[in-house]
Design a protein around this nucleic acid. Structure first.
Length: 194
DNA sequence: ACGCTGATGAAG
DNA sequence: TTCATCAGCGTT
């Protein structure tokens, strides 16, 4: 069952943790691509210096100020895309970055997109997920509750099985423990925890 | 440890 | 208009 908009219209920290174990699905012309979410990060509001929307509304970040349950996909480092799910009510800018998946279906297509045979290397990083799924700016703004890209209910992860660490790859806001992984899952982006 | 790569937003 | 920055990845 597909997660409804009300799932996303809550505290970002709660959504980020509850997304662990859920299934990201993308229906494409070449078949269904899916994977279990095993790593997320929260980016929350104007007081979080690492959040793209920290300095207010811009053309790029207005999507984070919009309604919850929308895909926010942006280009990073000139070559890779990152997929986020917008959270919380409209006018509060926040999102959850999907950082790593355990591939479930469409694995052959993912291998082709990634030019990579090792299943563990297919989706263990936010840029790799978008490459494996073929997601780019064309899917920015897609409604995760009503489009070919959505998230389904699946496993429930017990709080005791969630590892909390600082976020990766940022230069500000490092002190916030807003990265979440399924403990011991081998598909996380950084196998060694910080 | 480093280079690739280009959109973004702030500064001028 | 220029310029530093950047929620990553692959190769060295």
């Amino acid at each position: 069952m597909l997660l409804p908009q009300s799932f996303y219209n809550r505290s970002t920290l709660q959504v980020a943790q509850e997304l662990l174990g859920k299934k990201l699905v993308f229906r494409t012309e070449v078949g269904i691509l899916s994977g279990r979410i095993v790593e997320t990060e929260a980016y929350i509001g104007q007081d979080d210096p690492a959040c793209h929307a920290a300095k207010g509304r811009t053309k790029r970040t207005e999507i984070m100020f919009g309604p919850p349950g929308i895909a926010y996909i942006y280009l990073i480092y000139g070559m890779y895309y990152c997929l986020n799910a917008v959270t919380e009510a409209a006018d509060f800018p926040a999102a959850v970055l999907i950082r790593a998946l355990e591939p479930l279906s469409g694995i052959d297509t993912m291998k082709k997109h990634r030019k990579q045979e090792n299943i563990r290397q297919l989706t263990n990083g936010p840029g790799k997920i978008c490459q494996a799924f073929g997601l780019d700016k064309n899917m920015n703004g897609a409604d995760l509750c009503n489009s070919n890209l959505f998230i389904e209910m699946d496993k429930e992860i017990a709080p005791s099985d969630i590892l909390k660490t600082s976020r990766i790859g940022i230069s500000v806001g490092r002190e916030k423990p807003w990265r979440f992984c399924i403990k011991g899952n081998p598909f996380a982006s950084h196998p060694k925890h910080r």
